[in-house]
Amino acid sequence: MKGRSGKLIIAMVGVFFLLVSWQRFFAAEGAGLPAWVLLTALGIIFSGYMWRTTSKQEKESEQKWIEQEGSVFIRRMEDEKERKLVSKE
């Protein structure tokens, strides 16, 4: 496991064991939510976080692509302008 995804998986496994331990510890008192409910809530929160992160990365990469294509278009326009000036002379 490399980088961020490995750390994320390890963190999620740690949270899972923490929640299971928490549920078993507090199960005797009868208070608390089942672990699957907490895991579902954490999954929803994580999903929202990943959606936001991915969306931001996509916007940045799309903006870079747009800027790159724009510079290519401008260069072509300048080359065409030069050709017209040279052909008039």
Rank of each mutant, 00 (worst) to 15 (best):
M1L: 08
K2R: 13
G3V: 09
S5C: 06
G6Q: 00
G6Y: 02
K7H: 06
L8F: 08
I9S: 06
I10K: 11
I10T: 06
I10N: 11
I10A: 14
A11H: 04
V13D: 01
V15Y: 04
F16S: 05
F17N: 02
L18R: 01
L19G: 04
S21F: 15
Q23P: 03
R24I: 08
F25C: 07
F25M: 13
F26N: 12
A28R: 10
E29A: 15
G30W: 08
G32N: 01
G32K: 02
L42Q: 07
G43V: 02
G43W: 05
I44M: 03
I44E: 05
I45Y: 08
F46K: 03
S47C: 13
M50L: 13
M50R: 11
M50G: 00
W51L: 15
W51P: 00
R52E: 09
T53M: 11
S55K: 14
K56M: 05
K56A: 15
E58Q: 12
E58D: 03
E58V: 13
K59Q: 13
E60I: 06
S61T: 14
E62A: 14
E62Y: 07
Q63C: 00
K64S: 01
K64M: 04
I66R: 11
E67W: 07
E67P: 01
E67L: 02
E67S: 10
Q68M: 11
Q68G: 00
E69Y: 07
G70L: 04
G70A: 06
G70P: 02
F73V: 06
F73D: 04
F73A: 11
I74Q: 06
I74L: 14
R75Q: 08
R75F: 04
R75C: 05
R75Y: 04
E78V: 10
E78G: 00
E78R: 12
E78Q: 09
E80D: 13
E80T: 04
E80I: 11
K81Q: 14
E82P: 00
R83H: 04
L85T: 03
L85M: 06
V86D: 03
S87L: 05
S87M: 07
S87N: 12
K88G: 01
K88N: 03
E89V: 13
